[in-house]
Design a protein around this nucleic acid. Structure first.
Length: 172
DNA sequence: TTAGTGATATCC
DNA sequence: GATATCACTAAA
């Protein structure tokens, strides 16, 4: 029996949540009752104002406000005008942390994930707890995780761009 | 390698 | 109001 991840799961440090989220299942129930499921194969952690790759590095703004808020909230960000990227807020309140969902088992790439799962801007700021439309499940699967440097943040400087906060299920 | 795309932030 | 930036993808 699959267990839905509760608020406790996300109420931890992003560096703990990110690897734990790999292998979990993202479920999105559509209005007509169809359920889209996808096992998460790759995540990245973004953590703190000092992390130059994190959106919150430049300070608290309207867009990054969610990162500072409650854990267990979905943060959806429109990138390059056409790609939705999905994050989950983690950690303590007033501490900007989040986990980016980069890929699913069948999809490779953050924007493909949101496209296949039909996640868009309307999910920005949605709380997972008690949500009947989208949630995460644990079916007991524990993949082997390997780490790698994050991608797409070359601007962040040598230190932050090389740090290994990317978590990938082994076998990919 | 480059074009395409639009919200957000920053600069007049 | 205008411009620069960006956690990307697809096509070539």
């Amino acid at each position: 029996m699959n267990k839905r991840l509760d608020a406790e799961f996300f109420h931890r440090d992003a560096l703990d949540v990110a690897p734990d989220l790999v292998g979990k299942i993202l479920v999105h129930r559509l209005a007509d009752g169809t359920e889209l499921c996808e096992r998460i194969a790759e995540t990245e952690a973004y953590r703190g104002e000092e992390d130059k790759g994190c959106h919150a590095a430049k300070g608290r703004t309207k867009r990054t406000e969610l990162l500072y808020g409650e854990s267990g909230v979905i943060y959806v960000y429109l990138c390059y005008g056409m790609h939705w990227l999905m994050n989950v807020i983690t950690g303590e309140k007033d501490q900007p942390q989040g986990v980016l969902l980069r890929a699913g088992e069948r999809f490779d790439g953050p924007a493909k994930l949101t496209k296949k799962m039909q996640i868009d801007g309307s999910f920005n700021g949605v709380l997972l707890k008690g949500n009947e439309e989208v949630w995460f499940e644990d079916d007991g699967y524990r993949p082997k995780i390997r780490t790698a440097p994050r991608v797409g943040i070359d601007y962040a400087g040598d230190y932050w761009k090389d740090i290994e906060w990317r978590f990938i299920a082994d076998g990919k």
